[in-house]
Design a protein around this nucleic acid. Structure first.
Lengths: 221, 221
DNA sequence: CCGAAGCGTTAAGAAGGTGTAAACGCTCGA
DNA sequence: TCGAGCGTTTACACCTTCTTAACGCTTCGG
């Protein structure tokens, strides 16, 4: 049986959600405030979290952020606002889906189903090259424990190199994949981005070595 | 789960293909136009591409050509035409197989299976001459376990020699292939590059022997 | 024996590719 | 409207690679 954690300050909403969820066979626990929600999450280890964005005190976004620091539990966002920015922010922080109040119970349950099903099949597609790990889903690059701060172009570039880790990738291949379908000729700028990447990768991690006249190679040792 | 990319301008065809593929467990993405198809291919990284030859705008042949500039993803050609010439052209450009519309779903799936199975067993085109292995795709030259560090010219030169391993290659032939399309006359400099190659090949591996007045020969023993 | 032709080897200048920093222009959000 | 972040361009120093030239060696025919 799955366990669900509700974090919402309105008691009425909590009661409604509890009824719907219990009727569906969920075990339910609640928290009326952000800080308590985090404690409950750590203590109860729910299988899914329903999080209201309009929390007093510690806001929903902040709760989600702290939650994501240590767990990947699926989070379904509840909000009366339909501000696109907040929605996007929440999803980028790793929320799994979003429902706008008021919502029908059918819609809620449907989205929960999707999340739960995804949970078992999901594992982020990722590319590993030595200590370097690229999480394609979350657009994250890690070097050991450290989270690299890469621009989109840098990420795409590193992705191409890491996909063929240890082998040469032609400059042509790199340009075609990173700048797919663009008319401008970035063959000059490629060197600049390589330079940036090398700086961010540092001295200890994998190295990007040049094969003069041909292309680049990512050496993961 | 494998990911398939459909590039076809007819929506009906795309829908049909999507149904068939998804029922087989493929994850499907689509593009209705050639240029978009190329972008999708770069972005989505499909495991197989289904490409219609009769595309408006950027034609199917052209799409295949550009695709092959940077990826080896298996491509299955779809076409209403049964023109032998186009078929041959596509296959020579590196298409993996060909289905003529209208086609049965069984036939389509069978060919996809073949392509997918081949994908895992396939290896880069390479030239072998004794202990020397030239990987043309990755621009790598190996002598036993050792990776040779060759300049582009040296690699091209060694490639010509290795292709005709054990046979004489005329100086003329060498120059024509290595310095194809260049105006300068490097017939003098050839000796220098041969010299460099011999040094890098060492004493134990294959030897480049001279046939006075004629050309060179690569002896793989 | 001698000279010429072809080849191997080395060195040095020329050409082109690469690393790096800085400046510019663009987009997007505050 | 402004500023931050990012992509791109530009410029220049540096290094690799290519080419050219020179010289000594071997071979072969006169």
């Amino acid at each position: 049986m799955s366990k669900a954690l509700i974090i919402d300050d309105e008691q009425q909403m909590r009661r409604l959600l509890r009824m719907v969820l219990e009727s569906r066979g969920y075990e339910v626990c609640e928290a009326a405030e952000g800080q308590l929600g985090l404690q409950e999450a750590a203590f109860q280890r729910p299988d899914v979290v329903l999080l209201d964005l309009g929390l007093p005190g510690l806001g929903g976004i902040e709760v989600l952020k702290r939650l994501r620091e240590w767990t990947d539990v699926p989070v379904l966002i509840l909000s009366v606002r339909d501000h696109e920015t907040v929605k996007v922010e929440a999803l980028e922080l790793g929320a799994d889906d979003y429902v706008t109040k008021p919502f029908g119970t059918a819609e809620l349950l449907a989205r929960l189903d999707v999340i739960q099903r995804r949970r078992f099949t999901r594992q982020s597609p990722q590319i590993v090259a030595g200590a370097l790990v690229l999480d394609l889903l979350h657009h994250e690059a890690r070097l050991g424990d450290e989270l690299l701060k890469l621009t989109p172009t840098e990420f795409a570039l590193l992705k191409v190199l890491a996909e063929h880790s240890g082998r040469i990738v032609t400059q042509n291949q790199i340009v075609k994949q990173v700048w797919a379908g663009q008319s401008s000729d970035p063959s000059e700028g490629l060197r600049v981005h390589i330079n940036h990447l090398r700086k961010k990768l540092g001295d200890s991690g994998p190295r990007i070595v040049n094969e003069p006249g041909i292309g680049y190679r990512l050496n993961s040792d």
